[in-house]
C-alpha cells in the first residue's frame, strides 16, 4: 500500500489537499478575527489620540485624512479633534526611521495655534533603559505647551532646545525629527487653509 501511495500524482494530490484544507480553515479564522483585530487597532489609535488632545466630542479616527510632508517623500495621518463641530486641535501620527533600531511612531497633539499639547509614543524598538526613556513624562514634559515655531527642535548638542536623554542622543534626535516633521506638515496645512 505504501508503494502505491508514492506515485507522483498521489504526492501532488495529497499536498494540494493539505494546502487547501489549511487555507480554507485559515480563511475561516481570518473572518472570525477580522472584527476584533480592527477593533483592537481602533482602540490603540483612540488611546493615543486621547492622551495628546482633549475635550473633543467626535471620533477623530473616522474623520482622519492624510497630508503630504513638506519634502513630499511621505504623508502623515491627521486626526482632527472637534467640539460641537468646531476644530479644537489635531493629533498627527508621525514617525522617524532614524532611531537606534526600527521605526519610532509618535502621536503629536497640536492645538489650533500649533502649540504642542502632548506627545504619545505609539511604538518603538529602542533600547530598554536608554532610548525607551522617551516614553517617560520627565522627557516629554519639555515639549508640552511649547510651539515649535519658537522652540528649536534639535538636540542641545546640535544647537537646539531639546534636552537629550542621557546615553540616547540618537533616539532623541530621531524623536525631535519626527515632531519637527509633524509640525511642518501641520503648519503647511493651516497656511494653505486645508485644515478643516
Amino acid at each position: 500500500m505504501a508503494a502505491a501511495k508514492s506515485s507522483f500524482l498521489n504526492l501532488v494530490i495529497t499536498l494540494t489537499i493539505v494546502t487547501l484544507v489549511a487555507s480554507l480553515s485559515l480563511g475561516y479564522v481570518y473572518e472570525w478575527t477580522k472584527e476584533p483585530i480592527a477593533e483592537a487597532q481602533m482602540a490603540k489609535q483612540l488611546k493615543a489620540i486621547e492622551s495628546v488632545v482633549s475635550g473633543y466630542d467626535n471620533n477623530p479616527v473616522l474623520e482622519s485624512y492624510r497630508l503630504p510632508t513638506p519634502d513630499g517623500r511621505d504623508s502623515l495621518e491627521f486626526f482632527p479633534a472637534k467640539k460641537k463641530g468646531e476644530l479644537i486641535g489635531v493629533a498627527v501620527k508621525t514617525k522617524s526611521s532614524k532611531g537606534y533600531s526600527g521605526d519610532i511612531w509618535l502621536m503629536v497633539g497640536f492645538n489650533v495655534n500649533g502649540d504642542i499639547q502632548n506627545i504619545f509614543v505609539i511604538e518603538h524598538k529602542e533600547t530598554p533603559g536608554l532610548g525607551s526613556k522617551m516614553t517617560t513624562p520627565k522627557f516629554l514634559q519639555q515639549f508640552m505647551g511649547r510651539n515649535p515655531a519658537t522652540m528649536k527642535l534639535t538636540v542641545k548638542k546640535d544647537g537646539g532646545d531639546v534636552d537629550a536623554i542621557t546615553g540616547a542622543t540618537i533616539t532623541t534626535r530621531a524623536f525631535s525629527g519626527a515632531v519637527q516633521t509633524a509640525h511642518e506638515t501641520f503648519k503647511k496645512s493651516t497656511v494653505n487653509g486645508a485644515a478643516n
Partner: peptide, 28 residues
C-alpha cells in the same frame, strides 16, 4: 500522507497553526 511529501505537508500544517496564533494574538 505519503513519505515523500511528509516534510512539506508538515510544514504547511505547522504554518497554518502559526497563522491562527498570529490572528488570535492580533485580535485579543
Amino acid at each position: 500522507i505519503p513519505d515523500k511529501v511528509r516534510i512539506p505537508a508538515f510544514i504547511v500544517i505547522i504554518a497554518a497553526f502559526v497563522t491562527v496564533v498570529q490572528l488570535l494574538m492580533a485580535a485579543y
